[in-house]
Amino acid sequence: MYSPDDAQRYADHHTTPESPLLARLNRETHVQLLHARMLSGHAQGRLLSMISHMIRPRRVLELGTFTGYSALCLAEGLAEDGRLHTIEQNPELETRIRRYVREAGEEARLQLHIGNARDILPTLAEIWDLVFIDADKINNDTYYELVLPQVRPGGFLLIDNVLWGGKVLDEYPVKLSDKDTHAVRAFNDKVQADERVENVFLPLRDGLFLVRKR
C-alpha cells in the first residue's frame, strides 16, 4: 500500500521541472528563512503556471507574496499586455522579492506592493481575471469579500492552505483557542455554500480551492 508521500514523490517526478531560477529561489527560501513551507514549491507552482497559461489573464492579483515564487509562476501565463499585482505585508522580504523579479525579467509586468492588503486593495482600480489568496488565514473571508466584486464574471480565485494541515477535517478535535483552524473551516463552508461561485477543492499539498465567479 502506497503512502501519500510516495504518491507525492511520484507526482513530482512526473511533473515538468521548475526552472533553474525557481529552483534556486526554492532552495534559498528553505535554507535562509523560517516558515519556508509557506512557499508554493514545485508541484503547486507548476499548477499555478498551468492555470495561468490556460486563462491567459490580463490582470492577476496575489495576496501574500512571501519570497515571490508563486508570483513568478503566475506571471508565466500572463497575456502579452498582462500585469500582476502582488501584496506582501513583511517589508523584510522586499529586497529578495525584487531581486528575483529582476532576474526573471518581470519588472515591467509584476508590481510589488508592501503593506497591509486591506489598505492596498481599495487603491487598485482593476478588474481581476485571476486572484491567488495566500495570506494570513484568519482573514481569508475578509480578502475574499474585498476582491470578489472586482473579479470579472467567469474569473477565477485560488485560495491556498484550505486543508490547514488536516485540521479542518471533521474528525480532528480543535481547541476553541485555535482561531486559525476555526477560521479556515468556516471559510471553506462559506465557499461551498456561496451561490455566487462554483468551486473545486483540490487536495494538493495543503489544499487549494479553485473557485470560478458565476
Score class of each variant (00 low, 15 high):
Q32I: 01
G105M: 07
G41Q: 08
E92L: 11
V101F: 05
P20Q: 13
I97P: 02
V31K: 07
A36M: 09
Q32N: 14
A75I: 00
H35N: 14
T95C: 10
H35A: 14
R58V: 00
E94N: 07
D81E: 15
R27V: 11
R102D: 14
E106Y: 00
L21M: 11
H85E: 14
R37D: 09
N26E: 15
R24Q: 14
R96T: 14
D81T: 09
N90F: 04
V60S: 05
L22E: 11
M38H: 06
G68Q: 05
S52Y: 03
I97M: 09
T95Q: 13
P17F: 08
R59T: 14
T65N: 10
Y100F: 15
G77V: 02
H53W: 06
R27W: 04
E103L: 15
M38F: 09
L47P: 00
G41H: 02
S70L: 06
L25Q: 08
L93Q: 10
L39R: 06
Q32E: 13
H35Q: 11
A71H: 00
A71E: 07
P91L: 10
C73T: 00
Q89W: 05
M50I: 07
S19W: 08
N26R: 15
L21K: 04
G45E: 13
I55Q: 04
H30E: 12
Q32L: 12
G41W: 02
T29A: 07
E28C: 01
Y100G: 05
S49E: 14
H35V: 11
H35F: 09
I55P: 05
G41M: 05
E94L: 11
E103V: 09
Q89P: 13
R24A: 15
G68S: 12
G64T: 01
M50R: 05
V101C: 09
L21A: 06
R102S: 15
L74M: 14
G77P: 05
E62Y: 03
L61A: 01
L72Y: 03
E28K: 08
R46C: 08
V31I: 12
T95W: 01
H53T: 10
M54K: 08
H35P: 00
M50K: 03
L63S: 08
L63G: 05
E28N: 06
L22D: 09
R98L: 15
D81F: 06
E103W: 12
L78T: 00
L74Y: 04
L39C: 09
H42E: 12
L78S: 03
Y100D: 12
L84E: 02
H35T: 15
E103Y: 13
